[in-house]
Write a protein that binds this DNA or RNA. Sequence first.
DNA 1: CGCACGATTTGCT
DNA 2: GCAAATCGTGCGA
Length: 222
Amino acid sequence: MTPTRAFFERPATEVAPELLGARLTHRTAEGAVTVRLTEVEAYQGQGEDPGSHAHRGPRVRNAVMFGPAGHLYAYFTYGMHTCANIVCLPPPLAAGVLLRAGEVVAGEALAQQRRGAAVRHRDLARGPARLATALGIALTENGADLLGGLDMTDTEGAPIDGAFTIELPVTPFAAATSPRTGVSGAGGSADFPWRYFVVDDATVSPYRPAVARTRRVTHSRG
DNA sequence: CGCACGATTTGCT
DNA sequence: GCAAATCGTGCGA
């Protein structure tokens, strides 16, 4: 079924596990790709989750997180990657669900084209940046309404670029949990077991605990 | 104003 | 297993 806005106007820790198995479709001018979500992470709001982008309050980058639920929060990281979240909780509260992995179930040829011919099926959307790439999610779509549907057209009747739909699974999945991947500091500890994934699914990304980056050697003045 | 580092991926060893 | 790639953001000075 298609979720209502109210579905997302709840804490991310409640929404996240219920998104497992959901089918997210993104249609662009190139075509449509659908992913079945197999791994997500919940990030809570200002002052309550040290791993969340919203933790230190509203900023230019995270402004969308403080906006209405059910919208796309896309951000750029490591100087090259885009990751996609679904905003939870109504304004002025901020929370989000990071889409970490899924299986491409439709539009495979287009996903393959975006990810590269040598990429195997299970790896097409296995990892947050890979998932964003497979779906064709660009930073320019940050803030897009995921509940707008695919039927939006412009005045010429042409499809509007960057349209989404979400379909929740008829039968809920049993979610396993773990600490969040790649989150350093307190936010990545077992105190925040907000990574949810489908058990025994090949498209779930391998769990890699966050590692403190080796400190770059600073210049010593001799 | 400067610098460290990130909700990562990839390729080489 | 490990390091490079690559740049916006946040924080300290």
